[in-house]
Design a protein around this nucleic acid. Structure first.
Length: 553
RNA sequence: GCGCCGGUAGCUCAGCGGAAAGAGCGCAAGCCUGCGGAGCUUGAGGUCGCGGGUUCGAGUCCCGCCCGGCGCACCA
């Protein structure tokens, strides 16, 4: 439709110029779906952008262009409006053929081949296995997984990847914490490591080691058994929580493997070779100045172990990613990681890597609200809420919807009271209810011996009302919403679009005149076809964000 | 101090440079012989943080300022 209108306008402008009614060159104009549907199906600003060069009032230019637009059967109305927009209204017959096309295509109508098989990697969550997932991780996981779903639905080949640090200081501290608890359980007095992990889960891991090995590890010189036990146990819990949230990964990459494969050493050598490394204060530094960074950044810590910082392995990880031939590499990060990521990208550029394929989605923090008050999140206090606890409380449908129901770069207040409400003010139930209602209607129809006609040629779509057509237009535009959400990397547009569609449907459904199953069988059959179309769109939309579309509630 | 992100109705938030600024909640007043009322209708409620600029046109883009969040670790 957009292409059609664009060419109609271009042709009209060209012909107006030929006959001398317009003097200036064609300026770049836009063709858009107006926000207000009473303005028609498509609108262009062509006259507005040309007005100055034409030295005429925008409306006058619009009138000229409109006069030259070739009449067509599927364009019902061309109208100049407002400050000089040209509005187009498509004929009902156009929408009828679109509805037929959508129904004939079935579920594939909601997908597209926009991606043409391009390979996309989405790296997300990437929480280190030092403790249970938090509510903030939930936002990350749902954003990343939903982006992946959107890419899949638009013909991309997607790899979901989870990267984690298991070789650094934090994991060492974790291992030391486990060892300390282990020795405590054996009745030995030990000093708990400074900055160690206090959580109760550490003691559980230690207890597991006591059960398995009894006192055999008491004199163990290496930290490795403790560290590995902690990683294994915590990672198992992370995976379980992800499953609960309907999030999965294709590839797990970790820091230790990169180090063992020598990839971190290679990065250091490459940086050294380009004169980007400095040594002072006992540490090895990445020079900030040549990279346009405000200061130097540590690559290797001082001290006997010369441990690489997370930053150094991050650079190695990104080089590894870039070498794998993805067309697009998307990362999902919390706001607190922005500066760090910029440092990594700067280093990649300095090493001569092409970073044009990198995209980032940054999200702000999540606050849980209960009873109108912020739930204080503190590791020390008992008020800490894990993602698993949140999921137990509200379930994956609500959690996913709520995490997506904000633009990612705004702060998210997660209202637990609203989340648990099974009433229309809860947007998740509002949308799911629209689906369940449609499902119920189709069930009722089947009971009444009214099948949805398989042969679309057998129904007369002209029987659809203006209200039904309006809803159908919104539904038919859904693939565009998906495309736009992906272009902007803004998955929140999907739940918002679903909420609007559900609202329009509920309003329609509530009017007695709109009974889908009625005494007029011909009319009922058309409405059933329409109902199936609307239901299909809601179901698909929910699937895209990983929320169930229930048949009954 | 520097960087990133926010500031839109009482609250929580949508809003691709376009037409008279939207939704939900809350508030006020209504609608149940009905394919699911887990729903719907109507109303009140706004200096789009402030001040400049760009533009035919700015909530949207640019600059400055104010307020809030986050970062500016040899933590990730």
């Amino acid at each position: 439709m957009k292409e059609l209108i664009t060419s109609l306008i271009s042709d009209a402008v060209a012909r107006a110029r030929l006959s001398g009614d317009l003097a200036s060159d064609q300026a770049p104009f836009t063709v858009e779906r107006p926000g207000d549907s009473s303005h028609g199906d498509m609108a262009t600003n062509a006259a507005l952008v040309m007005a100055k060069a034409e030295r005429k009032a925008p409306r006058a230019v619009a009138e000229i262009i409109a006069r030259y637009i070739e009449p067509r059967a599927d364009v019902e109305e061309v109208k100049v409006a407002g400050p000089g927009f040209i509005n187009f209204r498509m004929a009902a017959s156009y929408w009828h053929s679109e509805i037929r096309r959508a129904l004939a295509a079935g579920p594939s109508f909601w997908c597209s081949d926009l991606g043409r098989g391009r390979r996309v990697q989405v790296e997300f969550l990437s929480a280190n296995p030092t403790g249970p997932l938090t509510v903030g991780h939930g936002r990350n996981a749902v954003l990343g997984d939903t982006l992946a779903r959107l890419y899949e639905a638009t013909g991309h080949q997607v790899t979901r990847e989870y990267y984690f640090n298991n070789g650094g200081r934090q994991m060492r501290l974790l291992g030391e914490s486990v060892r300390a608890r282990y020795l405590e359980e054996l009745g030995r007095a030990v000093a708990f490591p400074e900055e160690g992990y206090q959580g109760e889960y550490i003691r559980e891991i230690a207890l597991g080691l006591v059960q398995r090995h009894e006192a055999a590890l008491a004199e163990e010189p290496s930290l490795e058994p403790f560290r590995a036990a902690a990683e294994e146990r915590i990672f198992g819990e992370i995976r379980a929580t992800c499953e609960h949230l309907r999030v999965g990964f294709d590839v797990y990459t970790n820091e230790l493997d990169l180090i063992r494969a020598g990839k971190v050493d290679k990065v250091l050598a490459a940086l050294e070779g380009r004169g980007l490394v400095a040594r002072y204060d006992g540490a090895t530094w990445l020079r900030g100045e040549p990279l346009g960074l405000p200061k130097d950044l540590v690559l290797l810590r001082s001290g006997p172990d010369r441990e690489p910082t997370y930053r150094t392995t991050d650079i190695a990880y990104y080089i590894d990613k870039l070498s794998r031939g993805f067309d697009l590499v998307v990362g999902v990060f919390g706001a607190d990681h922005i500066a760090e990521h910029q440092g990594v990208v700067a280093a990649l550029r300095a090493l001569g890597h092409d970073t044009a394929c990198l995209r980032t989605v940054i999200y702000q923090f999540v606050t849980l609200m209960r009873g109108g008050e912020k739930v204080k999140m503190s590791t020390r206090k008992a008020t800490y809420v894990t993602l698993e606890e949140l999921l137990d409380e509200v379930g994956p449908d609500v959690a996913r919807f709520f995490f997506l129901f904000r633009k990612s770069d705004t702060h998210l207040d997660f209202d637990l009271d609203l989340a648990k409400t099974q009433a229309p003010e809860n947007p998740v139930f509002y949308v799911q209810y629209a689906h369940a209602r449609l499902e119920s209607v189709l069930r009722e129809a089947a009971k009444a011996g009214l099948a949805v006609p398989a042969d679309l040629a057998a129904v007369d779509l002209a029987l659809l009302s203006a209200e039904e057509l309006a809803i159908a237009r919104r539904v038919l535009g859904f693939p565009e919403v998906v495309g736009e959400a992906l272009d902007a990397l803004e998955p929140h547009r999907i739940p918002f679009a679903l909420l609007e569609l559900a609202g329009e449907f509920h309003r329609y459904y509530n009017k007695p005149a709109n009974r889908i199953i009625g005494s007029d069988r011909e009319l009922s059959r058309v409405r059933l076809v329409w109902a199936r179309l609307v239901k299909g769109c809601i179901a698909r939309g929910l699937e895209l964000i990983g929320v169930n579309a229930p048949e009954r509630m």
